[in-house]
Computed example of a mutant assay.
Amino acid sequence: MKLALKLLATVLVALAFGVGSALLAVRSGGLGKAVSSGPWETDLTIGSADADPYIRAQVAVAGLLALNRNETIYFTAARDGDGNRLRSDCSYKVEGYDPPARWWSITLYGEDHYLVSNPLQRYSYGGETVARNEDGSFTIMVGPEETDGNWIPTGQGHSDATFTLTLRLYNPDENAARKPSGIVLPQIAKEACAS
């Protein structure tokens, strides 16, 4: 009887550690072939046959519904250009030119990987919806306080609430699909924080 209880306890501990480490690996990310361009990061295995079970689980948890990498490249920014976490109580300026793709969008997601609720129901801008500057570039303000022009609300976040921005490049040009780290992507600069 003692042997059976010890065996059961050992199996339960091993199972708890196994499930716990798998969940940690899936939630923390960083298991694939990550490349970056400024604050934007992508994983070369997302949407490819090279994706292992952990990468596939990360995609399922984050809700990317990843297409083939030749069709779409997904970049995520969790930090600004200075390397600081994107915080809901801060305002940021996202500036740049159209990335090399047929169509693109920038979308804000909360810590839970869902869209952040806001009264305007404004969650993203894309190549066809963003207002442009005179030189063809665009500026998108991201933050808790409404601004004129392109603005994505971060909600009524507190100082420890964070968010991410996802940049999707649909039908990227051949060079971008081959070497995503060589793409010049929009800059993310912190403007001010409430606290």
Results as ranks from 00 to 15, higher is better:
E111F: 01
L65P: 00
R56S: 08
T147K: 13
L12Q: 09
Y74C: 10
G96W: 03
L12P: 05
Y125L: 13
T107Y: 04
W151E: 02
G96Q: 09
G30N: 00
Y123T: 04
G81A: 02
I106M: 10
T164M: 03
P53R: 01
V19R: 03
V13F: 04
R27H: 13
A34F: 14
A177G: 13
G81W: 01
Y74D: 10
L67T: 12
G81D: 04
I46V: 10
R56G: 06
E174T: 12
D112E: 03
D82S: 07
L23I: 13
P180F: 07
F75V: 05
D50K: 00
G29Y: 03
E145R: 09
R79L: 03
Y170E: 04
E111G: 13
G47W: 07
V94Y: 03
V184A: 15
N68K: 05
E191D: 15
A4P: 01
I183K: 07
L167A: 06
A62V: 13
A16S: 07
T154L: 04
S181E: 15
G30E: 04
Y114D: 13
S21A: 14
L8R: 11
H158Q: 11
R27N: 12
Y125A: 14
P119R: 08
E191M: 14
I46P: 06
H158L: 11
K33P: 07
V26P: 06
V61A: 12
D82V: 10
N70E: 13
V59S: 13
R27E: 11
G110D: 10
A62Q: 15
M1H: 12
W104Y: 07
A60D: 09
G149W: 05
G110C: 09
V116K: 06
L108D: 05
A49T: 08
L169Y: 03
A14N: 01
Y92P: 06
A78M: 09
N68S: 13
Y54A: 14
N70S: 12
E146M: 14
V116A: 05
G110S: 09
S21E: 11
L15S: 14
R102V: 13
P53C: 09
A34H: 11
S195M: 12
T154R: 06
I188T: 01
G157S: 06
L23H: 05
Y97S: 11
N171H: 10
Q58L: 10
L169E: 03
Y97F: 12
Y97G: 09
L3I: 12
V130D: 02
V61S: 01
L44N: 08
A57G: 07
G110W: 04
L65I: 00
L31Y: 00
F138W: 08
P119F: 04
S21Y: 07
S48A: 02
L5M: 12
Y114M: 15
L24I: 14
T42S: 04
D112A: 02
V19K: 02
Y125R: 10
D135C: 09
Q156I: 03
V19G: 10
Y109A: 05
T162W: 03
L115K: 04
G29K: 07
F17V: 15
D50S: 06
A66S: 12
E95K: 08
L23F: 11
N175P: 00
G30S: 05
V11T: 11
I106T: 06
S195P: 15
